[in-house]
């Protein structure tokens, strides 16, 4: 079985580093591919042609921040969940807001998990660690 690749789309370098550290601390050693903006992340996920063929044989898990400089994470979520090659990849939304309407919107668009980045660091690292446990037991399906 091909190992799962974690795609992390997060524009805040500090957040990205904290997330990575916590994932590693949770004992997850999968490859992490970081992106700082939506455009390059989409180019990677859907390929330069935007068809999604590029992800056809990948096992991906997407960590998605909603607040990106060039687009909102919701745009990416929508495209990923609409593409037949990527729609089965789990998407974990990580953001600063706990606005109920936004949470609802993410789930409506097909997000698998929604995690609020708490300032309370204990809660945050716990969540990430649990996510790490989640990764370790999870079978990410190979995208067709």
């Amino acid at each position: 079985m091909q190992p799962v690749c974690i795609v992390m789309i997060e524009d805040d370098e500090g957040h990205a580093r904290l997330i990575e550290r916590n994932i590693r601390r949770a004992g997850v050693n999968n490859e992490i591919v970081p992106f700082r903006d939506g455009t390059s992340a989409l180019a990677y996920l859907l390929g330069p042609d935007g068809s999604g063929e590029a992800s056809a044989r990948r096992h991906l898990l997407i960590l998605l921040d909603l607040n990106l400089p060039d687009m909102t994470g919701l745009d990416i979520l929508e495209k990923v969940k609409a593409n037949p090659h990527t729609r089965r990849s789990p998407v974990v939304v990580l953001t600063t807001t706990d606005d109920s309407r936004e949470v609802q919107r993410c789930y409506d668009l097909g997000a698998n998990v929604y995690i609020t980045k708490p300032v309370n660091y204990e809660g945050f690292s716990n969540a990430i660690r649990q996510l790490g446990l989640f990764f370790s037991v999870m079978q990410v399906p190979e995208t067709p």
Binding site: D12, G14, T96, V119, F124
Partner: peptide, 17 residues
């Protein structure tokens, strides 16, 4: 309030680090 919160995540996170 959201934009103020993002840096706080870092301050708190790295303080814990």
């Amino acid at each position: 309030s959201h934009d103020l919160r993002a840096p706080l995540v870092n301050v708190m996170g790295f303080t814990s680090e």
